[in-house]
Nucleic acid binder design. Sequence first.
DNA 1: TAGGTATCAGACCCATCAGTCGGTTTCGCC
DNA 2: GGCGAAACCGACTGATGGGTCTGATACCTA
Lengths: 205, 205
Amino acid sequence: MNKSLKRLATMQRIQVTGLHLFYSKGYYNTSVDDILKELSLSKGAFYYHFDSKEDFFIQIIENLLVRKVYGMLIQPIEGHDHTLTMIADCFEDALETAVHNELDYGFVLSNFINEFNGRNENIMKHLNEILKVWEVNLVSAIQRGKFNGHIDRHVDAEGVALYLMSAYIGIRTLMVETAPAARKYRFMAQLRQYFKSLEVKTTSH
Amino acid sequence: MNKSLKRLATMQRIQVTGLHLFYSKGYYNTSVDDILKELSLSKGAFYYHFDSKEDFFIQIIENLLVRKVYGMLIQPIEGHDHTLTMIADCFEDALETAVHNELDYGFVLSNFINEFNGRNENIMKHLNEILKVWEVNLVSAIQRGKFNGHIDRHVDAEGVALYLMSAYIGIRTLMVETAPAARKYRFMAQLRQYFKSLEVKTTSH
DNA sequence: TAGGTATCAGACCCATCAGTCGGTTTCGCC
DNA sequence: GGCGAAACCGACTGATGGGTCTGATACCTA
């Protein structure tokens, strides 16, 4: 194998396992040794590739988290009509993978945000960037919906986006331990109810 | 001072400071020594009153957290008409304290739930109990609203309760770092919008 | 006021953890 | 095939954390 390819492959391996463990046990509660034991690698290998545990985690954010969030929550609602339907289906899919695969990485963000909030400014900066991208994308999707005539022109796009993010973060927290499938179902029903109230009132008889 | 009173006073002091630090730095990221340094107390004092760090935290939950959540989110919506208005005002108040006092303990729950989810079953049991009480209370409030004729009888009370809890947990997470006041305002507007869609459609002309 | 107990002090133990460092193996290349 | 660099090994360090233990005070009661 090519040298630079091998380097990337090893880094990737460590990062994937690292994210896995950080997600399930928490960042501060997972030691570098834990990750290395899982991979039968040594300290030397780790610190050859990464400057520190923090640097390591930031690389995980940039390489894995960003893409996961993008693929799961952003890309699916880009460039489509019927914005609200797209968003609802997107949330439905994301929650569905959360039901069946507890380590889906679909929205690890809320866990990490809670863990680093007010504790590690540097890492929070990177996590907030992902949130911001998500928010901006939601806002523009909603504005697109208003422009296309599917969403009432009086709705506050930023408000809706914030509300959607809140609801999603919250339901992900509540789905981890208790009745995920049932909760997902109930949540989605209410979300669609809320969406109805955003639609244009053309049928006001 | 009475002996047993002094005991309780000391335990209370340690617990209050403990909750403060656990909330701001996280449970696993706060050492017993951190708490004791803040109080100028010694290890001996701590382990005289508490069996372990975990036992200590569970007592904090039972003595402080339960009451805070009850006083802030449960008691205010008990036994009133105009359920939805009550809930909205209750959320508004709770978020308002969150805006002005970052350590308000208003809903520390979401932080801790995220921290212990899948990591400490014992502590999660206690946290889930609080959530359960909250949920049950919301459900019965909504059913009361249906009975009183303020809420449409077709709405799923459990679904609404879950949705409210999700939204609240999520907005609390999102309010910690970025523009809390503005986000609170936007959030509440959308919540009220959602509530409108739950009201009885008496004015359907 | 003497003795007992509740309360607290702080040195100590042992495990863990992030990070270091000198050394060894593997690989590409001439 | 041999040289140099990349990749990796693993013992070690210094710091920290949870928890223990031996006492020292403060306080109550008889």
